[in-house]
Design a protein around this nucleic acid. Structure first.
Length: 156
DNA sequence: TGGAAGATCGGCT
DNA sequence: GCCGATCTTCCAA
């Protein structure tokens, strides 16, 4: 429901902009793999490695609509979350899916996670990414995408 | 080897 | 709106 694009290595907001490190190594590989990192010592953020060939690009998943069997409501103890079955914010996405750094480098073509094209695209809105004020000219670029008119994306 | 900052979240004022 | 939690990562020295 909400994503952000990170277009390394030139994108100063991307972890891959400082070259290949132990953390960002998976982004320098082929697309279709998970890139998971720990932020603020607390939250696991989930990315899909994208980009052609060696280009270290990734898509951060910032919000999900949850399917049956994922009880985010219990985790958050919030009535709103229960009603919408929503994981809003990258940290909550990681928590809702039970993803942590052990899943870094997971092959999305091998399962159990699968990404499929949608039958019909909803209207998509775009704007600046969240929390990347340090990235100079890249901070203002409209590289955050969310389903338009849906009130459940992470705001700010 | 040390230290500062971080692609955040939720609770409290 | 502000603040604390919590610890990895990366760069400088």
């Amino acid at each position: 429901m909400e994503t952000e694009a990170y277009r390394g290595p030139e994108d100063l907001a991307a972890h891959s902009s400082r070259g290949r490190t132990a953390r960002s190594a998976v982004m320098f590989g082929p697309p279709g793999f998970l890139y998971v990192y720990l932020i603020y010592g607390l939250h696991h953020c989930l990315n899909v490695v994208a980009g052609p060939g060696e280009k270290p690009e990734a898509v951060l998943i910032r919000a999900l609509e949850l399917d049956e069997g994922l009880d985010l409501a219990r985790a958050r103890r919030g009535a709103a979350a229960a009603a919408h079955r929503l994981a809003s914010g990258p940290g909550n996405v990681g928590r809702a899916l039970g993803v942590d750094r052990r899943h870094n480098g997971l092959d999305l073509l091998a399962g159990p996670v699968r990404i499929e094209p949608v039958a019909r695209w909803p209207r998509v809105a775009r704007g600046p990414r969240v929390g990347v004020g340090y990235a100079g000219p890249w901070a203002a670029r409209p590289m955050r995408f969310w389903i338009a008119d849906d009130p459940h994306v992470s705001r700010r």
